[in-house]
């Protein structure tokens, strides 16, 4: 009696939830029933790749890799080069990172190193709510609030002081690359700040104390001990933010001006891949036109795989260490 009970308990311990080898057929079936949905995500990603590649094939065959660096986008004559869209996508995302990352790091440092636990929780909540604003609402706000503000408040002084740089030359439109960069920065900040906050929190207290014990001020502790230790997590966060920015569609479409051009000035309108898809996909008249659009979607997809893969790897390395 006693022996059997002990035996059963031992068996339960030897067969933990991750049980090496459920013996009953029901357990085995259940195992399969859980594994299949898990595999669905893997299947989906592969399927997306196959489906998009297939649909993009006509354009890939017709234009080859030059698709990415020629800039004639002419649906009437069925000639498609994606360079203006590639440029707009990269430029707006880089702008978002340039504007958003310093702010995100400031937020992350404040939350992880300075604010008390309760304040940090409240502020984290507010910043998560920024991430919860639907993109299309941010776009609406962008059209009617942000763009006029950029046109009247941001661009004139920038032009007055830095107008000699081509980057800040020309008339103030409001709608354009700068407005897109700002709105993307707003969307990127919650992601970058929360991931880097976690990276900073993962820094062992000993590192901070060792720096304090050398007579460092709090800023010096952050600068010389905390930030260097958490750097791979922070880099992961930035890459993740970049990934979030370049695939973003609605808000950008609504404020970037949607003009396929490569202008030197940030005040000028531009066009992104995602915006082109949103505007032109359901109106694509020829098969080749549609195929060219799908090829751009494929580019977005491929870059998102690379960027997110790299970021996940960096962040997980940080939290595992």
């Amino acid at each position: 009696m006693f022996r059997s009970q002990v035996g059963r308990e031992a068996e339960a311990l030897l067969l933990p939830p991750g049980g090496a080898r459920p013996r009953r057929w029901a357990d085995r079936t259940f195992r399969g029933a859980l594994t299949a949905p898990g595999l669905v995500v893997v299947l989906l990603v592969a399927w997306i790749a196959v489906e998009l590649t297939g649909a993009a094939m006509p354009a890939i065959r017709r234009f080859g890799p030059a698709f990415l660096w020629t800039s004639r986008w002419d649906p009437v004559h069925n000639v498609f080069g994606a360079l203006p869209f590639v440029y707009g996508t990269i430029a707006s995302s880089v702008l978002a990172v340039v504007i958003g990352v310093p702010i995100s790091l400031g937020v992350a440092i404040y939350l992880a190193e300075i604010a008390g636990a309760r304040t940090a929780r409240l502020l984290s909540c507010l910043i998560e709510l920024v991430a919860a604003i639907p993109s299309v609402i941010l776009g609406l706000w962008g059209i009617f609030v942000l763009a006029p503000w950029v046109r009247t408040v941001v661009e004139p002084p920038l032009a007055a002081v830095l107008g000699w740089l081509p980057l800040f030359s020309g008339p103030a439109y409001g709608i354009g690359l700068l407005a897109a960069g700002i709105i993307l920065a707003i969307m990127v900040i919650p992601v970058v700040s929360s991931v880097s906050r976690d990276a900073l929190r993962a820094v062992p207290q000993e590192q901070r104390e060792a720096m304090y014990a050398l007579g460092a001020t709090r800023w010096e502790v952050i600068r010389h001990a905390v930030l260097p230790y958490g750097r791979s997590g922070i880099i992961g966060a930035i890459i993740l933010g970049f990934g979030r920015a370049f695939g973003e569609t609605m808000a950008v479409t609504m404020v970037i001006g949607n003009r396929p051009q490569i202008a030197p000035s940030l005040f000028q309108p531009a066009y992104t891949i995602a915006a082109a898809l949103a505007n032109e996909f359901s109106e694509a008249t020829s098969d080749l036109y549609l195929s060219a659009l799908v090829e751009m979607a494929l580019v977005l997809f491929a870059v998102s795989l690379l960027v997110n893969g790299a970021a996940q790897w960096l962040v997980s390395r940080m939290t595992r260490a």
């Binding site: 062992p204 000993e206 104390e209 060792a210 720096m211 014990a213 007579g215 460092a216 260097p228």
Partner: peptide, 19 residues
């Protein structure tokens, strides 16, 4: 900060700055 420069400290677990 000035006190900590005059009174140094060594901790239980060695914590060299890894970077």
């Amino acid at each position: 900060v000035t006190i900590r420069r005059r009174v140094g400290m060594v901790f239980q677990r060695p914590a060299p700055f890894p970077t």
